[in-house]
Amino acid sequence: MKSSQLESVWGYIFIFPWILGLLFFTAGPIIASMLLSFCEWDLITPIKWVGFQNYIKMFTQDPRFWKSLYNTFFYTAMSVPLQLVAGLTIAVLMNQQVRFIKVFRTLFYLPSVTAGVASSIIWMWLFNPDVGLINYFLSMFGIHGPLWLASEFWAKPVYVIMSLWGVGGGMLIYLAGLQSIPAALYEAASIDGANSFQKFIHVTLPMLSPIIFFNLVILVIQSFQIFTQAYVMSGGSGAPADSTLFYVVYLYQMGFRFHQMGYASALAWILFLIILGATLLLFRFSGWVHYEGNTKGK
């Protein structure tokens, strides 16, 4: 065997585990899910082809679908801009030359590592309406705090506030970007008489815009998939009055509680289309992103 042939054979051997994984756990399930979304199946009675029925039902006769969509859009629209700004603010602070800065970086990153059931429980306790720390803090200013998770109006903002606790991951990405901005640009701006604020607007923001864009896309995708917090804090129900019934919580209920495998698959495909659409839309309106080394602007 020629050595290039041998190399080819070994190449296929090395990627073989992934090929198997792709067939059984990714590509196969994608096709199966596509087909299932046109079927009705409760895992017990025989599977039945229903055409576009699941999709038609979803859009025309399912108020909980619309409710979960609204809740998820609301959460995304509130939490993504706040997370973007908070992450950037903290990253700028972490980029300063002050003492113990490494300790602080670790501290700000820590909550994004502990995200999950335990963190959700901590926040349930903080937002307890009667004896929680947050309402106690508000009462010090004479504000009578809301019922938070028990209130239809205030339950979603709880998740928005919680999301701000986890900005550490985004912060680290910003920080890497900040540290790669050449110092010469700031020096040039100083010579031109720019103050700190002007430098931030005219140097930092444009240079960082690809990273801001990256974080924006990732955050939008993640926000649409919010699940664990919402499941733990509402016991999987989306209570009160479905106000925290986020899209994936609803999908989980349909698939694994009511065993409507076809309908849940259809929900999953709509989620994929929404995420894809949102991503394409963000790219379409990414004219504000400044790419270094691209003299033609966009």
Binding site: P29, A32, S33
Partner: peptide
Amino acid sequence: LLLGTMMIPVQVTMIPQFIL
């Protein structure tokens, strides 16, 4: 193709995997 699979949300493959 491998990079493309990152685009697919886990919710899409979750149900057929469960059935498998």
